[in-house]
Design a protein around this nucleic acid. Structure first.
Lengths: 339, 339
DNA sequence: CTGAAAGCGCTTACAG
DNA sequence: CTGAAAGCGCTTACAG
């Protein structure tokens, strides 16, 4: 391994000076700088990140905590990750996906080791023990999502109110008056308290009231089979529905497939509009879906930028709520019977 | 931060002795051990992993290199990751998903920093520059997949020959004599050289010859729309086919959906059998698919165990090839016209 | 069984 | 602009 010592010897300077040019942390004369740079190139010097971390108390590693062993990573989470990683790279940090069980203990264990400078937390519960652990530890962290009362916590999230507003208006303007929201399955213990479901249901209730329509909500797990089951309930319990907003992304697949299997034409008989959709969701269905596109890439980037700002000792940017945006496809149209 | 110094002072011993009990690296008398353990508990001591890494030259971090910015993580890769991470945890290591562009340069950059003790490489090409970079760097690594000639490289992979053999026999025994293999799109520059496609096509050709049937191969990208397109070609170019083996996992979704849309009944008219399927694939389709289940979890575990063995200086276990296993579902049956 | 000390490869006041 | 030196928090021969 080539060390700064080796470079310093070959360039005839002290290791401090080598450090100054490697980090650009202090002015160095052009002459000695070029001697050092040549020595580094000739020796193939690479700064050891572990030693740097110990001396500077910064590992430059950011962990995206991910409950790997609980459930599979969703497409939405992957969008956060990809964009967050790219942003971190641009700012001289590594962002890695770190499997951590969905409770506070394993996270605390990780933090105690001092390997990471900051944490990005996804799938935040309204009342999340991991947020408590992070706060107690005084480690910088950013939420993608938010607790019931995030206060001054650094966070970015989807603006569910604005998303529901635009989605509902889109359907209303097409003429729909019987709109069903398929939300998440709140009986699942890990989701009783899941912000996106809670906030969307509340926003839908408010919006529906504003439009004078009934706010019907069906719960569904986030899998294709669960989506098929909800298609059943939709047809039997709400046969007059003409449009469906869908929150759990994978349920959409089963819902659409089962509705078509039962002879319903989309969008002629029923309009389908997923509310927080990843990039690839539309092509997974036939017809290609109209979606509310998730701002996942933006959220991943903003979360990491805020996090690194705080680590650097800068004031954190204010929390940001970003709505999903309507991307036209072939799954929404006017209802079969004009109102 | 509580350090070993603090613990040593409170227990009235040297930091060396503290280190011995923390690591269990040397015998310590019961009396002083319990004094130290009490001191650690009272102070809430957590060993600093960065200092440990610098002193011991082992970070205990394993990177699963993942080309995040090139394409999204597939369900199959996630299965590797989850199982690999769990295995690493059991053996006192962290396995994290590290976004690294799919060329040698960024990987070399990462290795140079000395942050990781070993690397697990996925989506290995037959001729893979990353393998060269890893070898040159003399860092321990394990492949999930393999190069054209892996030689003594540590690797685990799917046994494509056995998988094709079992899948083809399953269909043949049901009575099928017109079997099409949907393989990957080799015109994609990143996949010209992709082992699973190359090896499966070769194995299928050999097997088909053994059964005296024609080895028809269609190429498809690994997306649902690509799967729809291949359904087109299947019906127009090979209208007499009665069964389809499918390699690109996501293409299966589009293929099945388009075939049903065109009025083909599965499995009455056509049997569909995905060859390397993740756990959740069957439920994404209706009817639920018969699949060749990927041994992803086994491969992830075996790769990490081999890797840690080598890092520990033990002889590496021999390479392992594991076939996919047939999991019955509702997408294969006898062909419509008995042979 | 336990301790003093060197050392891992850097960063960073401090001096000049 | 440059260097000598302390220090980051551990591990690990080496002695006793």
């Amino acid at each position: 391994m080539v060390t700064m010592r080796d470079v310093a010897d070959r360039a005839g300077v002290s290791i401090a000076t080598v450090s100054f040019v490697v980090n650009g942390s202090k002015p160095v004369s052009a002459a000695t700088r070029s001697r050092i740079e040549r020595a580094m190139a000739e020796l193939g010097f690479r700064r050891n990140a572990v030693a740097r971390a110990l001396a500077s108390r910064r590992t430059h590693i950011l962990a995206m905590a991910y409950p790997a062993l609980e459930h599979s990573l969703t497409a939405a989470s992957l969008e956060f990750f990809t964009s967050a990683a790219a942003t971190a790279g641009r700012r001289d940090h590594h962002l890695v996906l770190w499997p951590v069980r969905n409770d506070a203990a394993e996270l605390t264990e990780l933090l105690g080791q001092g390997l990471v400078d900051g944490v990005v937390l996804m799938e935040v519960q309204l009342d999340d023990p991991r947020v408590v652990a992070l706060t107690d530890h005084r480690i910088p962290f950013a939420l993608i999502g938010r607790t019931a009362d995030p206060g001054p916590l650094i966070h970015v999230d989807i603006d569910f109110e604005a998303t529901i507003e635009e989605a509902t208006r889109h359907l209303y303007d097409l003429g729909h008056r019987r709109i069903v929201l398929v939300s998440g399955d709140r009986s699942d213990p890990s989701l009783v308290d899941y912000g996106p479901y809670v906030r969307s249901e509340a926003a839908f209730a408010a919006r529906a009231e504003g439009y004078g329509i009934e706010p019907v909500v069906l719960a569904s797990g986030d899998t294709a089979p669960a989506g098929r089951l909800v298609a059943d309930r939709l047809l039997s319990e709400h046969p007059d529905a003409t449009a469906v907003l869908v929150l759990p992304e994978y349920a959409t697949l089963g819902l659409v497939s089962e509705l078509r299997h039962r002879g319903r034409s989309i969008p002629a008989d029923l309009s389908i509009l997923p509310l927080v959709a990843s990039h690839d969701l539309p092509t997974l269905c036939d017809p290609e879906l109209t979606i509310m596109r998730s701002p996942g890439p933006d959220l991943g980037r903003l979360a990491v930028e805020a996090l690194i700002d705080v680590i650097d000792g800068n004031p954190p940017p204010p929390p940001q709520l970003i709505p999903c945006t309507l991307v036209p496809g072939a799954s929404t149209a006017a209802p079969p019977i004009a109102p």
